[in-house]
Design a protein around this nucleic acid. Structure first.
Lengths: 208, 208
DNA sequence: TGTGAATACGAGCAATCACTCGTATTTTTA
DNA sequence: TAAAAATACGAGTGATTGCTCGTATTCACA
C-alpha cells in the first residue's frame, strides 16, 4: 500500500545546492556583522546575489536559515576536530593535549566569525535551542570522554561538571581570542591554555 | 555675558524621576526577556504603564534607554561592591578574597538579569560601546589594583592581562551561574572560585 | 523534443517598528 | 491665581521587516 500522505521527494539540482551554500555564506557574513535579530532576509538574499523569492525557495523562514547555518558549522567543526579531538590525546601530557585541542578550535572560530556570532547570542537560545545545543555539546562531550580516560577515578558527576566548566571557561575567553590581532593572538592563546591547564589540574586532582 | 546658546535647564519633577525609574525597570524586564534588538519601545512603555509619547519625553531614542539602564546598573554595582571589592581584600588569603569578591557579584548578577542581558549581547558593543565599556571595566580595574597590591613583583603588562583574563573567565561561567537553580548554585559558585583560584595562583606565580 | 519539476525573479503585502505631534492635564512658579 | 513648564496621552507616520505569489527561465529525463 502506497502512502498518499508522503510528501513528494524534492529532487535538488546541483544548481540548488550551490545556491544554498551561497545563501548560507551570505547569512554567515550578515549575521556576523549585524547579529541575527537585526539581519534582514532581504539583505542576506542581496548579499548572495539572489532575490528574496529565491531565498525562500530553499529556506522556510529566517529561523531555519540560522538552523541550517549552525548545522553546517557543526559538520565542519566535527570534520576539523575529528582527529585533533581524538581520544588518543587523552594519553598525551597536559601541555601537549591542550595544544592539540585548543589550536584547531581557535583556528576554526577565527576562520568562522559567523559561528561565533550565532553561538554567542544568548537570545537565540530559545528559538534555536535544538540547533545550538548539539553545537555546544560537541566540545563538552568529547572533553568528557577525554577526562574519563585521563582521570578514571574521578566520580562521573564531578567529571561532567569539570568538562562543562572547562568549555565555559574557553567560551569566556573567546571574545578576547576573536578580537585579538594576529600578533596578539599567541599571547592570548597561551593564557587560555594556562587557565585551562590550571583548572583541569586542580579539578582532576583526586585529593581536592 | 550670558550664553544664549546654552540649552534651557530642564527641571525634572519628582514625578518625572519616578517615571524614568519605572521605564528603566520595564526596559530591564523586556531586554532580559527579548533581547535589545527584538525589544520594542512601545512594549517597554506599555510594560511601564506609560504611552510611547511619555517614554520619548525622557529618552531621546531606544539606544539611550539602554545607555541609561547600563549607567544605573553600573551605579548599583559600584554601591554593592564598594566595600566588598575594597583593596583590603588584597591582604586576605586567596580563598577568603575570592569569597569576598565573587559572592556579591554573583548575587548582583542573579538579582539583575537585565544587566546580564545587556552585557552579554555582543552586538550591542558597537552601539553601546561608550556605555558598556565602563561597566566591563569596573571589575577589571578593581581586580588589577588588587593584583598590584597582592603581587607587586608581577610586571604590569602581565598583571593587566591576568586581570583581563580572570574577568573573562568569570564572564564565561556567568551563563551557568544565571541558569543554575537555587540548589545548584553553591556547586557552580564553588567551581567558579576553584577555576579562578587555580588560574590566579599560576598567573601570579613569578616562577612561571 | 516535449513536459514537468526545479530554479529564479522582484514587486508588493501585511505587520511591525522607532518615533512624532497636537492636545490635554498636572505641577511649579511668580 | 494666572502664566509657564513639566508630564501625559495615543493615534498616526514613514520606513523596514519577513515573507508571498504570479510569472519567467532553465534543467532533467523519457
Amino acid at each position: 500500500m502506497t502512502d498518499d500522505t508522503a510528501k513528494p521527494v524534492r529532487r535538488r539540482q546541483a544548481r540548488g545546492e550551490k545556491r544554498m551554500a551561497e545563501l548560507l555564506d551570505a547569512a554567515a557574513a550578515v549575521f556576523a556583522e549585524q547579529g541575527y535579530a537585526k539581519a534582514s532576509t532581504n539583505a542576506i538574499a542581496a548579499a548572495a546575489g539572489a532575490s528574496p523569492g529565491t531565498l525562500y525557495q530553499f529556506f522556510r523562514n529566517k529561523e531555519q536559515i540560522a538552523e541550517a547555518l549552525t548545522a553546517r558549522y557543526l559538520e565542519r567543526l566535527r570534520a576539523a576536530h575529528g582527529e585533533a579531538f581524538d581520544l588518543a590525546v587523552a594519553e598525551l601530557p597536559m601541555e601537549a593535549m591542550l595544544d592539540r585541542i585548543i589550536d584547531p578550535v581557535v583556528a576554526f572560530d577565527r576562520a568562522n566569525p559567523g559561528f561565533y556570532a550565532l553561538l554567542s547570542d544568548p537570545h537565540l537560545s530559545k528559538e534555536l535551542a535544538s540547533a545550538k545545543r548539539p553545537a555546544q555539546k560537541v566540545m563538552f562531550e568529547q572533553l568528557d570522554k577525554i577526562l574519563e580516560r585521563r582521570a578514571p577515578d574521578l566520580p562521573p558527576e564531578k567529571r561532567t561538571r569539570t568538562a562543562e566548566v572547562a568549555v565555559h571557561l574557553f567560551r569566556g575567553l573567546l571574545p578576547m581570542i576573536m578580537a585579538a590581532s594576529e600578533t596578539e593572538l599567541p599571547a592570548v592563546v597561551t593564557e587560555t591554555k594556562a587557565a585551562l591547564r590550571a583548572y583541569l589540574a586542580t579539578a582532576t586532582d583526586a585529593s581536592s
